[in-house]
């Protein structure tokens, strides 16, 4: 019986905070292309997420088929006044350091599901 190895790499926010957008994206994508699942402390800026998708698309070939990404953000806005206040405070105090971002190769992760009632939990459907 053959076994498959799953490699998780934790990236601290301090490792990316001095990098510019291009360098951050390039660092994440190079780790994912090594078939690693990256657990990033914090999150990308909103416009960086779009740029990450753009760069991912530019990199797609027969070996690299893209990424699966999800952000765990326990303080994410829920539309209520207190929800918005809490989000604004968290953004002010923590900035991009808030939450955790999970990025993995689409050849390894089939889907990441988030249960809206459990904001601190993600479930990963792995490829066969």
């Amino acid at each position: 019986m053959s076994s498959k190895k799953l490699v998780l790499e934790f990236v601290q926010h301090s490792e990316i905070e001095s990098l510019n957008t291009e360098e951050r994206i390039s660092k994440m994508l190079s780790l994912v292309k090594e078939n690693k699942i990256v657990i990033l402390e914090g999150r990308f800026r909103k416009q960086e997420e779009a740029e990450l998708i753009q760069k991912t698309m530019e990199s797609i070939n027969s070996n690299f088929k893209g990424i699966e990404i999800a952000v765990i953000n326990p303080t994410s806005e829920n539309g209520t006044f207190f929800g918005r206040l809490r989000t604004a405070l968290a953004n002010l105090l923590l900035g991009d350091r808030e939450g955790i971002t999970l990025i993995g190769p689409a050849t390894v992760i089939h889907e990441i599901k988030q249960d809206p009632t459990k904001l601190n939990q993600l479930s990963l459907d792995l490829q066969n």
Partner: peptide, 18 residues
């Protein structure tokens, strides 16, 4: 389809940021 996908969040978040 389940709307809680990062792609949806990214699209809407980007529009809000702009």
């Amino acid at each position: 389809v389940d709307p809680y996908s990062q792609v949806n969040i990214t699209i809407i978040g980007n529009l809000a940021a702009r």
